[in-house]
Simulated assay, not measured.
Amino acid sequence: MSLPAPPVRCGIIGTGGIAHAHAHALTDLGDRAELSAVAEIDPARAAAFTERFPVSAVYGDAQGMLETERLDLVHICTPPKTHVPLAIAAMRAGVPALVEKPTALSLAEMDELAEVEAETGVPVLTVFQHRYGPAAIRLRKLVASGALGRPLVATCETLWYRDDAYFDVPWRGRWADEGGGPTMGHGIHQFDLLLSILGPWTEITALAGRLSRPTNTEDVSMALARFENGALATIVNSVVSPRETSRLRFDFEYATVELEHLYGYREANWRFTPAPGHEDLIGLWLDDDPADPESGHRLQIEAVVDAIAHGLEPGVSLTDARRTMEFAAATYASAFQGRAVTAGEITGDDPFARSMHGGAVPWPPVKGTVTA
């Protein structure tokens, strides 16, 4: 009889709102994970966090935690601009990092992370939790098996609402701090799920606009995408939509599969419609698992913790995350240059590899700020 694996020792950098989701997930895992330490530059915020979650050690900076603690995983829950330097510090300390989206602010930064990962042999993972819902896993298996036939048409919509006050936080809506608008910070979860189902894309034609919000970035983007398998998809990312929803629809040869939710889905949020003559496919889709977990942080963090505990490769890898980041970069490049952009085109010294805005934003910056 084998002994249970020791708990995976975890640290969290940053104790803002999203860190609470990580801490709740780790707490729910019981003796499989241990929240060993947190690093937070704001003492008051650290104190509030440790009142809610049992933590053995608190540090005023990430480097001190990485140098002192023996960690198996560090969760990076800080503003986007800090993700890359913190992930590099973790890799050089020998600690795998699970990074909140976006992993980086540009493809060049993603490639920098990949270089350090290759040098150290320590992985960087990205939080894309919607990949881990049971229905999404089931759909990927059905697509891979060919049971649904070829994918033909897809739609992906992140129609959210953020008022003007949302952008009062200094790093929001600034290219240099957040990397982009709803394409990078909101819709990325939905189109990452889309990409995980449909596979590699080949071409994007897009539009983007700052229609309403006091932001340097876009507040709406729309893209048309072609995939290697021939499927065509529309992708909409918005923070100006009062009735908020997140919708995905996949039309295959033999069935339509739909999802509508907001920030997390369960089985009831999905709909499966077989094509005439293919009603037997309903049996492949139905799931009688009574657990019915929501597609939140818990599922991905559980998968990552279990992979580390058993010496397996956890997801979502830098390679997978870069495909999603490239989709965002191509959306901006197409929108700001007024042309189609192909997969693999944005490389090297391309301005859209160095930053998502590519130095080509067609609207003026908000007064008192800069576009970079």
Rank of each mutant, 00 (worst) to 15 (best):
17 G>R: 11
143 V>W: 09
89 A>R: 13
126 T>C: 12
82 T>W: 02
45 R>M: 05
239 V>L: 01
371 T>S: 07
72 D>K: 02
60 G>C: 09
344 G>T: 07
169 V>G: 01
100 E>C: 01
181 G>R: 10
85 P>H: 07
166 Y>N: 09
119 E>W: 13
270 W>P: 00
111 D>H: 13
10 C>H: 00
253 E>I: 07
96 P>M: 04
272 F>A: 04
183 T>M: 02
12 I>E: 04
3 L>D: 00
335 A>N: 15
324 T>P: 15
190 Q>L: 15
332 Y>W: 10
294 E>K: 02
211 L>W: 11
34 E>K: 08
304 V>K: 06
53 F>N: 00
156 C>I: 03
247 R>E: 15
88 I>T: 15
299 L>N: 11
179 G>C: 09
283 G>W: 04
161 Y>K: 13
135 A>F: 08
62 A>Q: 14
171 W>N: 01
198 L>C: 02
29 L>F: 00
211 L>M: 14
186 H>M: 11
111 D>R: 01
258 E>A: 11
161 Y>Q: 08
323 R>G: 15
107 L>W: 06
23 A>R: 02
312 L>F: 10
68 T>P: 02
20 H>D: 09
371 T>N: 08
81 K>N: 15
12 I>Y: 00
362 P>H: 15
350 D>C: 10
76 I>W: 08
313 E>Q: 06
313 E>S: 09
15 T>D: 08
187 G>W: 01
208 A>S: 12
199 G>H: 03
344 G>N: 03
22 H>M: 06
51 E>V: 12
328 A>Q: 00
319 T>F: 13
128 F>P: 08
154 A>D: 01
319 T>R: 15
346 I>M: 11
52 R>H: 05
21 A>G: 00
89 A>Q: 13
24 H>G: 02
144 A>S: 10
124 V>A: 12
203 E>W: 12
177 D>H: 06
229 N>D: 04
263 Y>I: 13
107 L>M: 13
164 D>F: 14
102 P>F: 03
338 G>R: 14
24 H>D: 14
282 I>E: 13
197 I>K: 07
42 D>Y: 05
212 S>I: 11
162 R>A: 15
38 V>G: 06
260 E>V: 14
56 S>N: 03
236 V>A: 05
272 F>K: 04
62 A>G: 12
197 I>C: 04
5 A>R: 08
87 A>H: 09
252 F>T: 00
160 W>E: 15
228 E>H: 04
80 P>A: 05
64 G>S: 10
5 A>Y: 08
256 T>V: 07
9 R>V: 10
195 L>P: 03
282 I>N: 09
351 P>Y: 07
247 R>M: 10
94 G>W: 04
320 D>K: 14
125 L>H: 11
170 P>S: 12
100 E>Y: 05
271 R>H: 05
348 G>M: 06
15 T>H: 00
126 T>D: 11
142 L>S: 05
368 G>M: 10
139 L>K: 07
45 R>V: 01
160 W>P: 05
48 A>G: 14
75 H>G: 11
232 L>Y: 06
174 R>D: 04
72 D>G: 00
318 L>M: 07
32 R>H: 01
219 D>I: 09
131 R>E: 07
255 A>F: 10
143 V>M: 09
182 P>K: 04
